[in-house]
């Protein structure tokens, strides 16, 4: 009897797995990553993450196939603008079967939650991700308050 219960559990476990696989199939069925979320209009600006690291803010932007020279970052106070161009990289002498990767210029601006020290901003481009470390200006830094 015990072995039979374990068999049933195993079958139920397999069915759970099957169900979650089916769910993810309908969610993700051939949905192109560049095509935006759900069925909305394709995004033409890079996706970003913003994290608060305490003394600085960290912004990560997704810019695959964009060269360092083709990226511009503008900072003023708490205003940040990323703009750039992705140049077409289609090789010579090939016939084209499919082009899904957009080659266009983009621009995106943000209002950061804090003013940042524009002089100390560091930006690195690696593996198609632009990572920027934005130190908060002195007035915006967290401060320990001693209680009298």
């Amino acid at each position: 009897m015990i072995t039979r219960l374990q068999d049933i559990n195993q079958i139920l476990g397999a069915m759970d797995l099957f169900r979650s696989q089916m769910n993810s199939m309908f969610n993700n069925f051939d949905r192109s990553y560049s095509g935006g979320r759900d069925w909305s209009i394709a995004e033409t600006y890079p996706r970003t993450n913003l994290s608060d690291m305490g003394d600085n803010l960290e912004l990560i932007a997704e810019v695959p196939g964009v060269f360092k020279e083709d990226l511009q970052v503008k900072i003023q106070g708490n205003y940040l603008e990323i703009s750039g161009t992705r140049k077409p990289d289609n090789p010579e002498g090939y016939t084209v079967h499919r082009t899904e990767r957009a080659t266009a210029s983009f621009s995106r601006s943000f209002t950061l939650p804090y003013e940042v020290d524009a002089g100390k901003v560091e930006a690195t481009l690696k593996d198609g991700l632009l990572t920027m470390s934005l130190p908060k200006s002195e007035a915006a830094k967290p401060r320990q308050i001693s209680i009298q």
Binding site: S32, N90, V96, E100, R101
Partner: peptide, 9 residues
């Protein structure tokens, strides 16, 4: 997610 691709031949 399905990555965007270009295909040439």
């Amino acid at each position: 997610a399905a990555p965007a691709v270009d295909i040439y031949e």
